[in-house]
């Protein structure tokens, strides 16, 4: 086949089929992440700060059925302390919780945010594994956007609860397909602690300072080294200094988490690395649109009291995925 014919075919293919793809996509994406910069910024902040609460909420339910343990790891500052009755309705002896889907919606008339969560609880009853499927809706007050208060839960409703007997992973049926996944990844308290930390970090670098306590962040935020690689721009400095430097391009906008991985766990030195891929969308100080695909590695040390101290952050800006042909080589 001649090269020109091939290119013509490619161009034709794109021109014919792209219009079919784009409307579907825009509909989906617009719902998930608004395109207007102001909305996008608010969406990122809302999602990240609410996710901190949600991660704490579920993570603290995973216990050895010691009521005080479950309650002590639950951050009531984030949620208000009136939810103990509701929380007591969850199963006991939860070993893992899988969040199977979630959706953040802004309520009309500036009336707060609604976060829908579908989840799967794996717990044991008399040494037998059981699965409970839950569909819950959390409604948050809107005041946290003023950066004065942490997100507070206004109402919680349980839309659906279904218990599946014999959720033994050996006999998993189609409804427990995620249970199989749980064999290779532990959706345990650590899983949620890492995510609670990560969402608080994302909110922090977007300018939300109220979540510092969630990150044990009073000391290490001034001590950790932050290394930044943005194209030909390389700098290493304290976190506050690098954040100022970043804002010379990433001025107004928000970070969204695209992937999270834990690597380089070293039990001897009690360290591990949180490996993140983030997407940033917003505007430059001159008001020009900017998008970034960011790789961050956060090295964490677990102290003897089990609190976390961040030692270093490395950040590299990758090629944002903006077109299907960008990875092609000839």
């Amino acid at each position: 086949m001649k090269l020109t014919s091939i290119i013509t075919f490619m161009a034709l293919f794109l021109s014919l089929f792209m219009p079919l793809f784009i409307p579907q996509v825009l509909a989906g994406v617009a719902h998930a992440a608004p395109s207007k910069i102001e909305d996008r910024s608010e969406y990122s902040t809302s999602l990240n700060t609410i996710a901190v609460v949600i991660m704490n909420w579920y993570g603290s339910l995973i216990t050895d059925n010691q009521a005080e343990d479950r309650q002590s790891s639950f951050n009531t500052k984030n949620t208000g302390d009136q939810w103990s009755d509701y929380r007591s309705q969850y199963p006991k002896n939860i070993s893992q919780i899988l969040i199977t889907s979630n959706d953040l919606l802004k309520l009309e008339n500036d009336n707060g945010y609604q976060f829908n969560v579908k989840s799967k609880f794996i717990h044991s009853v008399k040494n037998e594994l059981q699965t409970q499927l839950l569909d819950e809706t959390f409604v948050f007050k809107n005041t946290f956007l003023l950066n004065e208060n942490q997100p507070l839960i206004k109402t919680i409703s349980r839309n659906k609860s279904e218990t599946i007997q014999s959720a033994d992973t050996e006999n998993a049926d189609t409804k427990t397909v995620d249970t199989k996944k749980a064999k290779t990844h532990q959706y345990n308290r650590s899983h949620y602690k890492v995510r609670e930390f990560t969402y608080a970090w994302l909110a922090y670098i977007d300018g939300v300072k109220i979540l510092k306590p969630t990150m044990n962040g009073s000391a290490w935020l001034d001590k950790a080294t932050y290394s930044l690689n943005m194209g030909s721009d390389h700098s290493e400095d304290s976190i506050p200094s690098i954040l100022v430097k970043r804002r010379q391009l990433l001025a107004k906008g928000g970070h969204l988490l695209r992937s999270l991985d834990i690597k380089n766990q070293d039990n001897e030195s009690n360290t591990f690395v949180i490996d993140l891929i983030l997407e940033w969308k917003g505007t430059s100080p001159k008001g020009k649109p900017v998008i970034a695909r960011i790789h961050q590695e956060i090295k964490v040390h677990i102290k003897t009291d089990q609190s976390w101290e961040v030692i270093s952050i490395t950040e590299e800006h990758l090629l944002p995925v903006t077109a299907p042909w960008m990875g092609l080589v000839c």
Binding site: L26, V29, S35, N229, M230, G231, L249, L250, W280, K281, S284, K288, P289, V290, I291, A292, I294, E316, H317, L318, L319, P320, T322
Partner: peptide, 10 residues
């Protein structure tokens, strides 16, 4: 969604 955004770090 945006007109010719700056691709940070590229």
């Amino acid at each position: 969604q945006m007109s010719l955004p700056i691709l940070s770090g590229v």
